[in-house]
Nucleic acid binder design. Structure first.
Lengths: 155, 155
DNA sequence: ACTGAAAGTCGTTGCAT
DNA sequence: ATGCAACGACTTTCAGT
């Protein structure tokens, strides 16, 4: 993945597309000050370069009854490559795990898990986390409130 | 925010819109097995009910040179309502802070911060976090690797 | 690189079931 | 609730600058 030059037009395009992924090419062109054709070519280029990885609808966890967010700190027993790889593979497959990062600090991984309620979380832990091989410690920090939650990159 | 009934069509629609927020209504209708008009009316309803909060382009941090993710654990000195509210307000305004949750456990808040490099992170801490009133402790856990990172809710 | 126009596709609405 | 049909708007391509 290599870097590339981005001018003000590209930055504006990315900004508006983060804000509204379904904005019409015409509106976008108006907002950034390009003709629709020129704007469209730039968007295409940004997609092909990989700067735009995709588009997604943002759903509301509250409205959909998936209101519980938990930060799960996981430490593995031994840091062998293969047990780590298997952990990552399994965890990636769980739909309840929205995010998983390998981190510095006391834990090896931090996961953000989203479930409808506490009993679902209990089931998730017992059936999907505690059954994994090589788990040393699991610590759950429950989200009391969501202050901010986007994936919008600063440009 | 009240719950509402969702049938299989709605679930399929949300699933596909999470996967591709720019899918055309016709393709979506094909995929879920509805006519374009019926599908479009359901999408409209889901938007109005708030189940769909919006749409966004997903950008690639690596390609855009915003490769460093840090989990910042923040504890406040006294849990007065007003200092907490001010902290939340300020932190929400920082573009580097993609996510912020009030959590249980040792810290009061966990923030996910994204910056281009370590020196930018240093500046972020000194100029934007350490200057806030009532900060008791700040602990930084750096993301070594991103295993999974979506906002896709399990349906 | 950009603009403007042309052609095809799609979103959106109204109406009937 | 659904499908069909029609109009207007849009996306996308291509030639010219």
């Amino acid at each position: 993945m290599k870097q590339f030059e981005m001018d003000t037009y590209d930055r504006k395009i990315l900004h508006h597309l983060q804000q509204d992924g379904r904005i019409s090419n015409q509106q976008l062109a108006d907002n950034v000050g390009l003709s629709p054709a020129a704007c469209w070519r730039r968007v295409r280029a940004l997609e092909e370069q990989g700067a735009i990885a995709g588009y997604s609808a943002l759903l509301s966890p509250e409205v959909l009854g998936q209101a519980m967010s938990v930060f799960v700190l996981v430490s593995l027993q031994r840091h062998h490559i293969d047990s780590t790889a298997e952990f990552e593979q399994q965890v990636s497959a769980y739909p309840e795990v929205l995010q998983c990062f390998a981190v510095t600090g006391n834990a090896d991984f931090v996961l953000r898990v989203v479930v409808p309620d506490m009993s679902s979380y209990d089931r998730f832990l017992n059936e999907k986390i505690f059954t994994l091989q090589g788990i040393a410690q699991v610590h759950s920090n429950f989200a009391l409130r969501e202050i901010k939650n986007t994936q919008h990159l600063p440009l």
